[in-house]
């Protein structure tokens, strides 16, 4: 499998979707992210790895300005999405987040029906003209979220009633339904059991066909399994960013090597 993905990786190498330059993040007085430069490619799964508190989740949340919801958080530097600075004063974070969707660590379905959970995004963004179109969008999203078969008979049951893995796939389907261009995933499998994790990982691999996926993960195995590019963060610095195979087989920075081999982290 590893060889297969190596093969695909070369084929799928695409243009830069997001490029970050000199990004700094401060939480109050704490300097959480220091001078990060990174280019995230389209139709690629990029993994952010690193020990706890290294800033990988923080950096991920900069990419769709989720940090805006935290009062004491301050971001400097440039993050360009398709060549546009997303921290430009004229940018509406709401529009940005429609393009850059997010899936969270803990499955967080709204206390609504499964259908309403998925339909929520399309509704607020006005993606459907009528009920039939909306039904179609919901079905498509649930199918791509690889959960359609499990829930098609109970679309109007509450989303909170699903199992953990199903909830997370529902949340992914919910994120897909708004037709984003980039999908950010913040440790999407950390609250799931191994079987559910495998299902979600499979799903991520399929999503790569249409989206640029950025995934933060604690598990190096997961990064190796699902990603084509890997970035290693340590103490707020981006230590190394390269093809996943390079990072895991031939890291250039000693810190990366230490982490990979389990000496730090």
């Amino acid at each position: 499998m590893n060889d297969m993905s190596l093969l695909e990786r070369r084929v799928d190498t695409k243009d830069t979707k997001i490029s970050a330059r000199k990004v700094q993040v401060f939480y109050g007085d704490t300097h959480a992210i220091k001078d990060v430069d990174v280019d995230i490619q389209d139709k690629t799964v990029t993994a952010f790895i690193g020990p706890s508190g290294c800033g990988k989740s923080t950096f991920l949340r900069c990419l769709n300005r989720m940090n805006d919801t935290i009062d004491i958080c301050r971001v400097t530097g440039d993050i360009m999405l398709d060549g546009e600075d997303i921290y430009d004063r004229r940018v509406d974070p709401v529009q940005l987040r429609a393009k850059v969707g997010m899936v969270f660590q803990k499955p967080n379905p709204f206390p609504k029906s499964i259908y309403d959970n998925v339909a929520y995004g399309p509704k607020i963004h006005g993606l459907a003209k009528n009920k039939a179109e909306l039904d179609e969008i919901v079905e498509k999203a649930l199918r791509r979220g690889a959960i359609w078969n499990e829930v098609k008979d109970r679309l109007h049951a509450p989303g909170t009633g699903l199992s953990g893995g199903q909830q997370q796939r529902l949340c992914i389907a919910r994120a897909i339904a708004t037709e984003p261009e980039v999908l950010l995933m913040d440790e999407p499998c950390s609250a799931l059991d191994p079987i559910a994790t495998a299902q979600v990982e499979e799903l991520i691999d399929e999503l790569r066909q249409s989206y640029s996926v950025v995934i933060v993960t604690h598990s190096m195995q997961q990064a190796a399994r699902v990603s084509q590019k890997t970035a290693f963060f340590h103490l707020g610095n981006l230590v190394e960013y390269d093809d996943t195979s390079t990072i895991f087989t031939n890291p250039s920075d000693p810190r990366t090597e230490s982490y990979i081999t389990g000496r730090i982290g």
């Binding site: 919801t69 969707g101 969270f104 206390p111 995004g121 607020i124 949340c171 994120a175």
Partner: peptide, 17 residues
């Protein structure tokens, strides 16, 4: 829970939505 707010903001909803 804050996670519900995050979920909604992450989908591009405004605060009032």
């Amino acid at each position: 829970p804050q996670s519900l707010r995050d979920g909604s903001y992450g989908l591009g909803a405004t605060k009032s939505e």
